[in-house]
Structure formats: structure tokens, C-alpha cells
Nucleic acid binder design. Structure first.
Lengths: 216, 216
DNA sequence: GCAAATTAATGATTTATTCAAG
DNA sequence: CTTGAATAAATCATTAATTTGC
């Protein structure tokens, strides 16, 4: 094959190793400069771009957290169950609740958010604590996720593409799109194709999050 | 003071006007090129960066959606309420059920969290299903007929740049992270302090499903 | 009228979900 | 199943509106 346009980055073992090492060292959300450097460094081991590094940390962080969370929740549930069924469990088979992951992970002191500013009042909410909900959007029952794959239709005209997650990217990297003020005014540019837009209803809106017109 | 350090972009009325016009025209998630152009165009009216444009669309889209959603839900609730009171009203006679939300009624009530896990939110249809109400044709809400309009539309020559998008952005925005492999390998870069580069919360499950299904 | 005190908007970040390649 | 990529939702934080006491 000429070169499979491989639509996505395939990190080499070395790259992964290094990234993980960094993660372990505490790197979580590297900024532009850091990403630049990491990328430069890793590019020695294979093709790689800044966004790959960016995404890697994003995903890794999220998934580590998720993993941990799930573990914790399961643990809690077991505890609750145990508590609730104390006697029964006592006599029943010792289910053996693994004594929690090493406490080292969870703590993560409330350090100040990176360089930015402000120690936040909120953010650090309670650990995991799921009220009574097991199910975190994940289908526990293995072998049932078939449902998730339904609809293999192409759906061509669907929006997708385009945007990309510049979102954080650009923030991280401070672009300065500040083009010279001389740019042409561009009449009315109507050249933007109208793409379909989500708007998938769902009337949640509950959760009564923050300031609700009360004592703000 | 000469210039407020203003940490954030303050769009001028013209800029906002143009952006809104674009939004109305169907622009939702402009890609790199588009953002570039928009930025260029708008920079004529005042300082502005690509990320500002990007964020603007992100936020505007999200908030329009949210607004609509809330409106629909409120309406839905009212319908339910009406429905529910139907009998009572019927026998109680003349209870006066105002047809549309007098803004003071139910303020952000605790709705039931619809399955947040919509398998395929793609198709834009299916708003808040309206019970069996008669008046489906109530809220025209100008500029919100997105569903109908954006969906069909022309995807003519645009043909989505799919995977290119992300790359495009960065390319567009300078700092190509893809440094030539010959760049300084940067041996061990120990310049990443294990400090706070982020690492603000590990096990924070933020809100942990505030919608506690309340077991009916 | 005006300036401190609130509240409403909205720009900017972060986190959670989802999609799909391998 | 793992995980790179992308998007949407939730948050946070600052600015503009507005209200309020003087």
C-alpha cells in the first residue's frame, strides 16, 4: 500500500511510554509551549502533531478519571450493599471487596488550577457518590452493547467535520488570529454552507446548577 | 484609563450584528477557513481573534439551543399540567387555565431527566414530543426553524473536509506543530514540573448526576 | 443623577459524551 | 475493546445592565 491515509495518529510505543511518564509526573493539561515541546520531542520517534499530544492528554486524563470513578463507585456500592446486608453477607460468601485502589490516586490535593488564576470555590465537588445510580451511561451488562451500534447508515450530509476541537486547542495555543487590520472587508460572504445542526431536544435543564436568582 | 486590560473580547455592535446574521444564515460551526474569513471581515470593526469567532458560534449555538429547549419544555410542562388538570378543571369549572406561560408560573421546575443518552441525536427532528396536544403550531419562534431549513440544504461543492478540519485550523493558525523531525530532539525535557499544570481534580465527578431520578 | 450593589449576559475553559478507526 | 478525534454540555469568570439608596 502506498500509504494508508491513516486517518488518525498511531503513537509508537516510545511515544506512549513517554506520554505516560509525563502524565505520571503530573502533566495534565499542557499549554501551548509545553505541547510544542512534547511534540518536538516525540516527533523524534515518529510522526506526530501537536493536536495528537493535546488529545492524548485530554483523553488520558478523562479516562483515568473515569476508570477511577467507576472503581470507586463500584466500591461504594459494594460497601452499601454490605452495609445493608450486613448479616446476610456475613454469612454468605465473602465477596471480597478489594480494598480500594491505592489511596495515592484519589487525593490529588486541591492545588490551584494551573497558571491561570483563581482558586475555585466549586469545581471540586464530592468524589463520586452516586446516589443510587449505578449506570453511568455505561451499559453494564456486557454483550448488550449491540444496541449501541445500530444504525449503520451513512448519513452523509450530517454536519460533522469542519469545526474540530480548536476549542481548547486554540486556547491552549494562543493563536493570534490578529490579522493585519488591513484585511479586505469581504462584502457579505455568503459562502458558508448551512450545515445541519444538532438540536437534539432533551429537556433536561434540571440540575438547578448554579446561581438561580437567589443569593448570588 | 487608556485601555482596560480587559481580559476578554468585547464585540462591537457591528460585529455582533454580523455574527448574528451569519448565524441566522445557517452558519453554526465554521471551519478554519471560514473562521479566518469571518475574523478578517470583522476585524474591520474592531479587535478580534479567530478564537473569539469560534467561541462565539459555540456559545451562541449552545445557548440558542438551550433557550429553545427550555421554552419547549416549559410549554410541554404546561401542556401536561393542563392535561392533568383537565378533569379537575372540567368539574371545578372555570379555573382559568392560561394558555401560555405567564412567565411566573413554574420557574425551572425539576424536570425528569430524560434519558440523557440519546443513542443517535443526529437527526434534528423530534423536539420535545408534545403529548397529544392540539396546538402544535404554537411557537414559530423566528429564526428557529433550523431543523427544516438546515437539514435539506445544499452540500454541493462543500463536501466536508472531514479529517482535514483539525489540521486546517492549526495550519491556518501558524505554529505548525509538525516540526521537522530534525529539530532538536530535546533529550529529556525535564522542564515539566510535576506541579499543577492542571491537575486540579482527579476524582471529581462534578455534579455526579444531580438529577437523582428520585425514584419516582 | 450617580455610584455601590445586584443581576443578567456572555466570553472563555473544562469536562463529559459520542463517534469510529484499528 | 481500546483509544484517537470531535462535539456538546456544564462551568467559571468578567463585563454590561439594572436596581437601589442617597
Amino acid at each position: 500500500m502506498p500509504q494508508t491515509p491513516s486517518t488518525r495518529w498511531c503513537p509508537t510505543p516510545e511515544q506512549v511510554m513517554i506520554l505516560e511518564e509525563m502524565y505520571r509526573s503530573g502533566v495534565r493539561t499542557p499549554n501551548a509551549a509545553q505541547i510544542q515541546q512534547i511534540t518536538a520531542h516525540l516527533s523524534f520517534y515518529g510522526k506526530i502533531e501537536g493536536k495528537n499530544v493535546f488529545y492524548w492528554f485530554q483523553n488520558h486524563k478523562a479516562r483515568e478519571r473515569q476508570k477511577l470513578r467507576r472503581r470507586l463507585c463500584r466500591h461504594h456500592q459494594l460497601l452499601l450493599l454490605n452495609n445493608h446486608h450486613q448479616q446476610q453477607v456475613a454469612e454468605a460468601v465473602s465477596e471480597d471487596v478489594s480494598p480500594l485502589p491505592s489511596p495515592t490516586t484519589l487525593t490529588a490535593a486541591p492545588l490551584t488550577p494551573h497558571g491561570h488564576s483563581l482558586p475555585h470555590p466549586h469545581t471540586t465537588t464530592a468524589p463520586c457518590f452516586i446516589p443510587q445510580g449505578y449506570n453511568l451511561h455505561e451499559a453494564p451488562i456486557p454483550g448488550l452493547e449491540l444496541a449501541g451500534k445500530l444504525d449503520s447508515v451513512e448519513t452523509q450530509e450530517e454536519d460533522l467535520t469542519a469545526s474540530m476541537a480548536a476549542e481548547e486547542w486554540m486556547t491552549t495555543m494562543d493563536f493570534s488570529t490578529a490579522l493585519p487590520p488591513c484585511c479586505r472587508p469581504l462584502k457579505t460572504l455568503d459562502l458558508f454552507p448551512t450545515k445541519s445542526t444538532g438540536l437534539k431536544d432533551e429537556c433536561s435543564s434540571s440540575k438547578s446548577s448554579s446561581c438561580s436568582t437567589s443569593t448570588n
